[in-house]
Each structure stands twice: as structure tokens, then as C-alpha cells.
Nucleic acid binder design. Structure first.
Lengths: 181, 181, 181, 181
DNA sequence: GATGAATGAGTATTCATTCAT
DNA sequence: AATGAATGAATACTCATTCAT
């Protein structure tokens, strides 16, 4: 029973990893279930033992990925400073590049946003609130505006890092970190 | 003859507008030729009287849009200051919302980047160089790094404006403009 | 009135020639009405002023072509000998290559044969009867069998001449003519 | 697993047979994938589980058919005489009527010749060379010309047998065999 | 649990034909 | 007579999904 459960988990895990890889590479619509199954080394039919359909697979991949990122954030030592927050972001962005690509793709696609938009909005709000809190002490009532801008700036940097291969990331990183030291 | 030409222009224009709308809403892959034809109020076959294929339609939409944006930029009064540049961007972003959405979607999708990536890279480089030139006088050799960061920040703001409907644009805009006044 | 008639005939003639060329090159199904119109230098719509549809165009082309061939035959001096008949065939085959290709294509295509099969059978019978008559004096009651064989042989040579570009026509021609001298 | 394989083989076989039938009846271009699927009693999509595309289906049908014919030739007792060769041809022509129709259709259609012309030319050359060898002993240096003519004559007979339902095959056959006895 | 054969609706594109001009 | 814009059905092919094994 336990063995069977493990086998199940193994297959599910492989499908999962494959889905992250394929979705992040080709986007939701251009990724076929067959491609994911092949990448996972299983038959196309097996996906439907674990996921109701392609859409649910995307949702689950997104949810798990988000949990993963949030857990990583929690585990990193945090002194509440903005600089530390930025460094964490740059680190995770590099470690979970595929996942981040996927999250951005989902945020921009009407079809996927319809499914996951609500969830994304909640996370955005949380992120923004925490960033505002970090800025509050030094900036006072300008903290909210600066938080909104900093969040957008950081996402702009991440966006370029993920999708623009001529992006001079080091320069942007240094400039941003210097500003918050 | 003149009536012919009018009919031609009208149909082409309607297909064009429909393509901008549908592409920017769903992205290239998820937009079907049928959807575009329906939106334009014509039969699917008619598209091929005006555009060689779906890909050429995308390219034309992109090229025309870019030309339009560049012309608008040229027509706006410019004192060479960063603040003015930002204001122009915010203005165009709002006026050409659909087009900008489309450009972002293209930049993130492998299949469309394969078609238009080269063109986009050239524009990116040009934008960056001009931004660097504006910053040169006040920042000296830190101008490049700041240009890269500012460009990313601006794009982050645009990104949120376009795809995040809970985005507090006014706050971000003020914060950014204040910094460069 | 007469001028108009001439104009009509001119356009019809050009469509005709174009149809022979295109049909014989690509076959009936693979030839598009647009291709024929383009080749004729007229608009696609004009075809339907002269021909009810694509099928009727084929039928008319075939009929006219056949008439043309038969007229040519009639005009050539004939001494009633088999050899002369063969020479006439080789000559026309070379002069009306396109037309002959078309006739062969029609004879082998179910769709076109359904339309023209009856007509073709009648001509075949006529050809065969005349050939038999030529052979009667020298061969007596074996004339029919020899006529059937000779006709098939001749058509085999024509077939290779038309569709097999590695065919050694000169050799075959000499061998056949020698046999009937 | 065995049942799987049986199902596979059965479906593939049915599609194959259907393709032979439809292709030989209508030719390549005029045969639609739908028609073939319907004839085979399967859904159109299933074809692509067994054949990469319509063209590969044609190639496979052609190659298999040719192999089959060549094997039959090899298995028939052969004394090296022309008459025996002719008899073999008449026999196979009758047994593999559909296949032979298809081969003739392929040879006359530009689109299919582009695919299979090379292969067909090689076979043609081989056939001709062997025929020449059979004739060499009795005809000497006229063997080549006679081989070319005989081959064309034989093909003319086959052509009429396949595509002309008023063809008096028995007469032609007797006349040809008599000549080489 | 796992397979992969099978389906059928969907995709981009072509094309004979019509008809207002 | 002549045009060519417009249509809609047809084409080859793909793909998410189901289900017997």
C-alpha cells in the first residue's frame, strides 16, 4: 500500500516536473499533453489518473510552484531589510527560473489568468504589503508608493532576466542594490 | 474602381483591427484565424486575400503598431530629459494599450519570438542607448547601469499597468517621476 | 457586334490555351481555376462567362482538342498504309504534346473518365476499326487481333514519350516502323 | 500486449488496404484522407498513428506493392524466354490490378512523380535491361531497340487492360505471345 | 496503476464559385 | 464583357481526452 503510494507519487512527481519544464518553455496553449507525457516518460493516458485535465495540471503546477517559492522565502534568513528581500528574489529567480517563467506566462495569458487570476491577486497584495512594511520605517507615508514602484521595478528586472537574453542583469542588479544599501 | 479600393481598404482595416484585438487578448497561438475573421465580421477565407497567412498578419500588426508608436514619439515635444521620456511612455502606454499588450505577449512566447525576436532586440537596444544618453550628463559612467535599471523599472510599471488590474498605477507613476525631477 | 464577338472569342481562346497547358501539366484536380485564369491573363470570374464550371471547361478542352487532332489527321496525306498511320501519330504526338498528355490523364482519372468515358470509347472504337481496315489486306482474319495489339503498342510508345523522360524514343520508333515497312 | 499488437496490425492493415483501393481508384491528389479513413472504417485521426502523413502512406503503399510484385516474379519459374516474361506480366497484372493502376497513376502525375519518380526510374531501367538480355541471343545488336519497343508495347497492353473496359485483351495477348513463340 | 489505440472536434489554409460593380 | 472581393465547404493534420486492456 505504501509502496503503491510511493509509485503513485513518483509518477505524479515526474509528470509535475515535466509540466513545469514544458509549460515554461512553450506556454500553456503550445504545450501538448503528449509532449509532457513524453518528457515525463509515461503514457499520455496516465496524466488523467492524476489530473482531471490539462487545465487542472496547470493549476496544480502553479499552486505547488508558488508554495515552493514561498517556503524557500520563509527558510531564508531575513533581517527585514529591503536589500535582503531583493537578494532573496534574485536568488530564487535564478534557482527556479523555469517556475518563474511559467508564473509570468500565466499572468499574461487571458485563458490562464481567468483560472488563476484571483489567486495571483491575493499573492500580489501580500507581497506588496510586506514590502511596504519594510519601507515604512525609513520612508513613512511615502512607503506605499515606493513599495508599488519597487515591486514593479523588481518585476521588470525579473522579466528581463527571464525573457530577454541580451539583458545586462549584473548592471541592473548592482544599481538596484546600491539604491537600497 | 474607387469603390473596389474602398471595399478592400475597409475589409483589410477591419481584419487588421480584429487581429490587434484578438492577438492582444489571447496571444498569437491561442488566437485562431476563425476568431479574427468572426471579430472582423468576414469569412475566414477572406483573410488570405489580404495576408499571406496568420504569421504575416502578426508581423504586419506588429510592424504597423511599432511604426505608429515611433511616430507618436517623434511628434511629442522632447527636451531630452528623462522625466519627459517617462511621461511620453505613460501616455503612449495608455493610448496603445492593446498594442503594448501584444508586444509583451510576443516577447514572452517562444514561437512568436522566433518570428519577431530580431526586430524586438534591435528596438530594445535603441531604446536603451537613447535612455543612457539622457542619463549621461547627470550620472556619468553610472549612466549605463542606471539606464538598464530604469528601462526595466519602466517596463515593470507598464507590465503591471497592462496585466494587473489591481495595480496602483498613480502611486507608481508619481514615485518614478519624483525620482527624476 | 462582330468586334464584340471577336473580343469574346479572344478571351475564350486564351482561357482555352491556358486550360490545356495547366491541365496537361498538373492534371485536372491539381489545376486550380485561378492558375488557369492567371495563365490566360484574365480574372478568375471571367471563366464563368464562357464555361459553366471547371468540369465543363475540361470537357470542352477535351472535345476541341480531339477535333483538332482528328482534323490534323484528315489533312495529312494518307496512302492507307500502316506505316503512314504510325508516322502521322508520331508527328501529332510531338506537335500536340500538351494535348496528348491531357487526353491520357483524362483516360486514367476516374473523375474525368466518368464525364468523358463514353466519348473516349467511341473514338477508340473508330481508331481501332480503321487500323483493322489497313491491316485487313495483308493479314486477313488476324487483322483484328493485330490491330488491337498495334494500337496498344503505339499507345505504349506514346505513353512513354509523354511521361517517361528517360525513354529512348528513337529506338522504339525505328523498331516499330521497320516492322511495318 | 499481444491483443494490442493485433489491434495495431489490424488497423494498419485496414488503412493500408483502403489506401490502395482509394489511391488506385482516384489517384493521389483526388484521394482525401477522410475517404481513406472512411473506407477503412476508422477515424481520420487514426491514420496518423500509423503513417506520418498522406505522402508517407502513398510511399508505403507503393513500396510494399513493388516488393510484392518483385517477390512474385522471383517465385515464378523462369526459363529466360521472352514469352515466359510476358506471361508472368499478364498474370501479375491481373492479380494486382489495383496496384498496377496506382503505379500508372503515379507515373503520370507530376506531384507524385516528384515523390517516387527516382524509384520508378530505377525499376524501369532494371526491367528494360533484363528484357534486353532475354532478347540478346536471338536479336543481337537490335536487342536494345526491340526491348524498348517490347516494353512499351507490353505497357500499352497493360494500360488498356487497366483503364479501357472495352479492350479486347485476349486478342492482344494472343497476338503478342504468338510473335515471341 | 499504466498503456496506447482510437476518436472527433479543432487548426490553418485552399479553392470553386458567386455577384455587385 | 470583365473584375476581383467575398464566401463557405473542403483539405491535411493535431490534439485533448477516453477507455478497453
Amino acid at each position: 500500500m505504501s509502496q503503491r503510494q510511493e509509485a503513485r507519487d513518483l509518477a505524479e512527481e515526474r509528470i509535475f516536473e515535466a509540466a513545469v519544464k514544458i509549460f515554461s518553455q512553450f506556454g500553456y496553449e503550445s504545450s501538448s499533453v503528449r509532449m509532457i507525457a513524453k518528457e515525463a516518460g509515461v503514457s499520455p493516458g496516465l496524466l488523467y489518473n492524476y489530473f482531471k485535465n490539462k487545465e487542472e495540471l496547470l493549476v496544480r503546477v502553479f499552486e505547488e510552484g508558488l508554495k515552493d517559492v514561498q517556503a524557500t522565502f520563509r527558510d531564508l534568513p531575513d533581517d527585514g531589510q529591503v536589500k535582503t528581500y531583493l537578494l532573496h528574489n534574485f536568488r530564487i529567480m535564478q534557482e527556479k527560473k523555469q517556475l518563474w517563467r511559467l508564473i509570468y506566462l500565466i499572468r499574461m495569458q487571458q485563458s490562464t489568468l481567468a483560472i488563476l487570476g484571483e489567486r495571483i491577486n491575493r499573492v500580489q497584495k501580500q507581497v506588496l504589503d510586506r514590502l511596504e512594511a519594510r519601507l515604512r520605517s525609513s520612508l513613512g507615508d511615502k512607503a506605499r508608493a515606493e513599495a508599488v514602484l519597487l515591486n514593479a521595478s523588481l518585476e521588470g528586472v525579473v522579466f528581463h532576466y527571464l525573457f530577454d537574453n541580451s539583458f545586462e542583469f549584473e548592471l541592473a542588479q548592482q544599481a538596484l542594490l546600491t539604491r537600497y544599501s
